[in-house]
Write a protein that binds this DNA or RNA. Sequence first.
DNA 1: AAACATCCTGACCAAATGGTCAAGCATTTG
DNA 2: CAAATGCTTGACCATTTGGTCAGGATGTTT
Lengths: 254, 254
Amino acid sequence: MSGPHLQETPGWGTLFALLKHNKGRGLSMSELPAIEKRNRSRGGADANGATRERNEREILAAAERVFAQYGYRGASVQAIAEAAGLPKSNVLYYMGNKRGLYVRLLERMMARWNALLDDISVEDAPAEVLEAFIRSKMQLSRRHPEGSRLFAAEILGGAPFLQGYLRGELREWVHARAKIFEQWAERGLMDPVDPVWLIFLIWSATQHYADFEAQVLGITGKAEISDADVERITRFLTQVILKGCGVRPPGGGG
Amino acid sequence: MSGPHLQETPGWGTLFALLKHNKGRGLSMSELPAIEKRNRSRGGADANGATRERNEREILAAAERVFAQYGYRGASVQAIAEAAGLPKSNVLYYMGNKRGLYVRLLERMMARWNALLDDISVEDAPAEVLEAFIRSKMQLSRRHPEGSRLFAAEILGGAPFLQGYLRGELREWVHARAKIFEQWAERGLMDPVDPVWLIFLIWSATQHYADFEAQVLGITGKAEISDADVERITRFLTQVILKGCGVRPPGGGG
DNA sequence: AAACATCCTGACCAAATGGTCAAGCATTTG
DNA sequence: CAAATGCTTGACCATTTGGTCAGGATGTTT
């Protein structure tokens, strides 16, 4: 029943509205290289907004690291500021407050996720789609490990900021793809496994290498996960999962 | 490197020594029902230690919830105390300090994990062992979701307290079992997949239902994961993973 | 130059943080 | 009874927390 004494569950309005607003564009504001040439600029130091852009990028990157490591409550604005090499006041000048900063990072990560596997149909080859799913998900975790961990920490804590997203957009996303998997099964292209659990299986297996990187490194004894490792893991997962679902590997031409 | 400004990485001595000490017993101190009848009791209210036992249990349970939800830094002693229905001073009276409390919880979880799949040999049937692994791991996550999330949060944050454990005991555990998987492959009992990645795959897939419970519930629209769901998921994972590794399902009698 | 706009940041604040301590309470043992 | 031991807890402390604000710096436009 909600954290004792502590309590998040902030204005869903904020994030949800923004997510809705961003839907389909596949990009969050913060990623646009130069939104509109800074219209309405009648003066000011660095009036074209290059400074803002640079600092915001720096702050977002630092915040992603810190939030990923310590979670929302555990992260302090001070720590983020130091990671970004700026005074705390400056961080708050750009981001308003801690919550806004956090929300913005979540949005950015959701946007990245939304771009994934956006257009598949029953007509596609299961093997190719599944492999593409596994591969792109691995790449996402690989390219944005901190964002991936940030997301994981948010969910771990009961998704106080993302519940709306989970029960809304993401749910639609999953069910749409689940339906396709089901139709494949009906056509005999794969075993009749529960498609939602299959998605969770892929999700968790790929997510693992970002979220539990410390564990993977500790156990394998490596200092870091290399590109070659990622490729091997991708192939391993593809092979096992496809075979496990009764899907013939790609390249066989259908 | 390392969190800016923040910094954990506490005395490894503490946890590591205790883990070593507990090794093989499969139980942490805190779980023993009544260690030794409280010898050396020459007075005091509740001199047999029943009060202590009750309160510690309560505190540990509450702390597990709070730490799991907010992470080490994000959790406050005050919040734990409120969750346990005790004044903060009382919590500190029993647990000494925040770190000690946290370490104790980690130990308890490691002990539970250590008991898993403790004695397998090459002679066992792969299908049965793998199914037992998946099943008991699912049960562990099911029975101790907070502990499971606590562990996950610790790893997510870079395992500041558990690095020694990961590079030590757990690594041995994994490699010992990996070797057996390899021998099975050599004997043609399963495909020659990388055994460590197979263990990670099982780990992540089973862990998912505890750690990402919020996501699973949000997407499936359920209010909770039922026992029947757990059973179905277990079967699903067993089926897909065994088939995916070229292991014939159990019951076939070898 | 004046007006304007953006950027920068130290000083400051109330609240929360982890932790200490002393004083009191309860009970068993001598 | 008194001593000893364990339990309880409010008061207190230094530090950190998220956040505000005023004042200044730096530049552009008119």
